[in-house]
Amino acid sequence: MGFILFLALFADLLSPFAYDRVYFDRVLLMPFEHPEHPLGTDEVGRDYLSRLIYGARTSMMVSLSVQMIALMIGLPIGALAGYFGGAFDFVISRIIDIMTAFPALLFTILIISVLGGGMPTIIVALSITSWIVIARITRAQILTLREQEYCTAARGIGASEWRILFRHLLPNAMSPILIAVSFGIPTVIFAEAGLSFLGLGVNDPIASWGKMVGASNAYVRVYWHLALLPTLAIALTMLGFSFLGDGLRDALDPKQKIRV
């Protein structure tokens, strides 16, 4: 997990080659076939190890920005809807219902088809579906916490609505929200990989694991590493983030802090 993040951050220093450097004489090398390319090269002669490392950067960039945007939109909307209720809550809840009922992937594809491909569009498109999850969880959290007696007690000492929301409700709502964010990251990575696989993802020559799998389609029978390595990278990253989510859940559970 940390390793993936590390790869993403220091891709420039770590990669033996630039991700778009093409060696026309070294097309489709198998791993270990050439000493300079330990994981071989792809169909146009780019170093596969470098592309895998840069792929980590793409995945991280897309998934982290999407979750940040989702958090920035979903958290305030969910919190306001949950705390104040009324017409605003009604509208938000219906939007959430409709969006939840709609297949997210189709929706993303639709947006990308309208706006065209590229990293920013992907981030926008995935954010539009991701904030729903955050908003829904935040709203549900606030709704339950609002009924807690310490919330009544805060009103009783004369705390303003905003103070109650920010000081008493949100801090207590944060752990499930953060867990949702960390579980959301692999979902986004997977979605980005899927979109790139379909050719709707990031543009060439930027490296993306999904795209690498997609591009390897024609050669995979012989050059198995082209498909296997990026798939493995995706799988390991997702596993890592799922563990992170589980870990967070355990670490943030207040019950575990209570002395027996």
Partner: peptide, 22 residues
């Protein structure tokens, strides 16, 4: 709200009435 400090309440449930994160 400004007057609320003059009259206060003590709650039944000492577990639920204190914010666990404060």
């Amino acid at each position: 709200r400004k007057m609320r400090n003059r009259f206060q309440m003590i709650y039944q449930d000492p577990y639920a009435s204190l914010n666990p994160r404060m």
